[in-house]
């Protein structure tokens, strides 16, 4: 468990989910507004456009101010460009390959692209650790703020490509799980301001070997380490469909959010976005617990509160 002091001043995201490996048409912004350079926009994959745009929307939402670091998380990375370059190697027998997709295939492409667009020479890091990539980015951000940085941008994003979707259906993943993708960005500060939407107070990452039937108990100890009980919570946001029954027995308001965003490694960023939007600041019930797991990866808990 790590106690954090991340005051969220602005946020934005793009998400879509679906069934049987096919995404429903989600609400997407007009990318032209945020990436006016047509050439640049054309070269960008959908994920890069989603990531860059949601980061710029988050800045818009937070208002002006220097960003002293860009920290991102992505489990799958830039899949479209990776696939495109891999296919071209075989289809062209390694000859006369276009480097664009190779350049854009690395997972740090989006963090780097945002730095370029903002002319930000500050700290820049990218986590690629499956289902806790975004939570690791939050952890790094929290450390940076405790080390003296004032204001950071932190985001998580993953895209579902047709190939990924097809491979997952061959593995039988979509029989049990919703498909999804998304990009969410947050502006985090070291202290409260007029703009503060809410605060991330604690993060926990549990091994993927933790038995699912122990999770409610582990949530309970996570809460008590933060001086709270289930009955103190405004609501629990649960991203593990299998556990909805266990959480229902707790007499605490519950929202199962996975159907809204589907399974992707950084779906925790959607959970956070959803939770921050719900924070009501009701007296004695200022906290929300967000529980998540991407398919069979690690379990993550986030505690957020209205401040």
């Amino acid at each position: 468990m790590m106690q954090t002091n991340l005051y969220i001043d602005g946020m934005a995201g793009i998400v879509s989910s679906g069934h049987n490996g096919t995404l429903n048409a989600g609400d997407e912004p007009d990318y032209k507004t945020y990436i006016p350079d047509a050439g640049l926009r054309r070269r960008m994959s959908r994920l890069i456009k989603m990531g860059v745009t949601s980061s710029l929307m988050a800045i818009e939402n937070s208002g002006e101010g220097v960003i002293e670091g860009i920290i991102t998380g992505t489990g799958w990375g830039c899949l479209t460009d990776t696939e495109k370059f891999l296919v071209s190697i075989y289809e062209n027998s390694e000859r006369l390959l276009n480097p664009s997709s190779f350049i854009q295939s690395t997972s740090n492409t989006i963090g780097a692209q945002i730095a370029l667009m903002l002319d930000s020479k500050h700290y820049n890091n990218t986590f690629v650790h499956g289902g806790s990539s975004f939570e690791c980015a939050l952890l790094d951000s929290s450390l940076l703020l405790s080390e003296g940085k004032k204001r950071l941008m932190v985001g998580g994003f993953d895209e579902l490509t047709p190939t990924k979707s097809h491979l997952f259906s061959r593995m039988g993943v979509w029989k049990k799980f919703h498909c999804g993708e998304g990009a969410h960005f947050f502006i985090a500060s070291a202290s409260k301001s007029k703009k503060t939407i809410g605060k991330i107070s604690a993060i926990e990452i549990l091994s993927k070997d933790t038995p699912e039937d122990e999770i409610v108990e582990r949530c309970s100890s996570f809460l008590s380490e933060n001086g709270l009980k289930f009955s103190d919570l405004q609501i629990i946001l649960n991203g593990i469909d299998d556990l909805s029954g266990c959480f229902e027995n707790l007499n605490t308001a519950l929202l199962n959010f996975k159907g809204e965003c589907g399974e992707y490694p950084t779906s925790g960023a959607y959970g956070l976005f959803r939770g921050l939007n719900l924070l009501s600041g009701e007296k004695d019930k200022r906290h929300i617990l967000i529980v998540n797991r991407y398919i069979l990866d690690v379990f993550t808990f986030l505690l957020i509160e209205k401040v």
Binding site: I70, I103, Q104, T109, A112, Q113, A115, L116, L118, D119, S120, K121, H122, Y123, N124, N125
Partner: peptide, 18 residues
């Protein structure tokens, strides 16, 4: 220390700012 050159996706700036 970690810094970003914020110059180009693959190339480094002539003054090596990053």
């Amino acid at each position: 220390a970690n810094a970003n050159d914020a110059f180009h996706q693959t190339a480094s700036s002539a003054e090596g700012e990053g």
